[in-house]
Nucleic acid binder design. Structure first.
Lengths: 149, 149
DNA sequence: AAGTAATCCTATATATTTGGTATGATTTTA
DNA sequence: TAAAATCATACCAAATATATAGGATTACTT
């Protein structure tokens, strides 16, 4: 039951970017340094976020990334799904990708339970926004450089 | 955000065992056959369940496993934790194993969020019992052999 | 125009985890 | 004594995660 580094780094980097955005885009180099993450790895992460419409990029010198929408209109579910794929405790209750249905769907003893767990998790993730994440973050983290989770 | 086969097979095997228990222990060979699982792999799974006090074993011919407590007194959280280790979306909010604390605990931007997610998941898992899982299972599954999730 | 700073893209490498199999020992019943 | 079961541990192959590397492209600055 684990979120990989893509999701962890991605969410943390987004929170960092949002907090430190003054005006104009923020370069990955800056985020990577502040959060002690690999810039190259963040590139891959932000590529996914851009393709999902969560951030937009500005290329060239003085470029970088910025949120594509206000932080309170971006759910954590959306972010994690962009980075991790469908969030589901077991693949067989992933209703997002047709063809992934378990063949014993109708008779499986545990399927109804897993569906419920999936719903509990996704409901929470979809109700929580990037802004909520930031609001819950400790104060000091807005001032000093962070290190890795 | 995935539960591995240990947790999936384990929960399904337990549900199967509970449903089909008449009196006396059920052999893994029978469960494995009915649920189309590897008996050898189930041995490892049930070894963990036994050490966690969820099932008890009867050795020798005509032996097998049976629940160590009524199904409505065994939570899914207990089962999954025995098979998967601590259920936590990110390792750094695993409060069960001391020493695993993230060093940036106090200042991490995302830690409070991950803690909340961990709590949402574990609350649900601890509130749901093996009996609940069975009660939600489709009727037919009590009669016919199942196949794998 | 040149240099630089940034994103973008894709291939590759390495380490870890997962999902088992295999082997044999031990225990108990028939 | 034979058979049926748990118990314990070692091992292995494949998949996945976690990056690193190298270059191409774009745009700003001087």
């Amino acid at each position: 039951m684990n979120i990989s580094t893509r999701g962890r780094y991605g969410l943390r980097a987004l929170a960092d970017m949002t907090i430190h955005a003054v005006n104009g885009p923020v370069a990955l180099r800056v985020i990577a340094e502040r959060q002690n993450l690999s810039e190259s790895y963040l590139e891959q992460v932000f590529s996914s976020l851009r393709k999902a419409g969560i951030v937009r990029s500005v290329r060239g010198a003085q470029g970088g990334y910025e949120l594509n929408r206000p932080a309170n209109e971006i759910s954590v579910g959306e972010i994690l799904r962009a980075l991790e794929g469908p969030i589901t405790p077991v693949y067989c209750v992933d209703d997002s990708s047709p063809g992934s249905e378990c063949e014993m769907e109708k008779t499986c003893l545990t399927r109804p339970f897993w569906e419920e767990l999936r719903n509990v998790v996704n409901r929470f993730l979809d109700e929580t926004t990037l802004q909520d994440v930031i609001d819950k973050a400790p104060r000091e983290s807005n001032k000093e450089p962070m290190f890795y989770i």
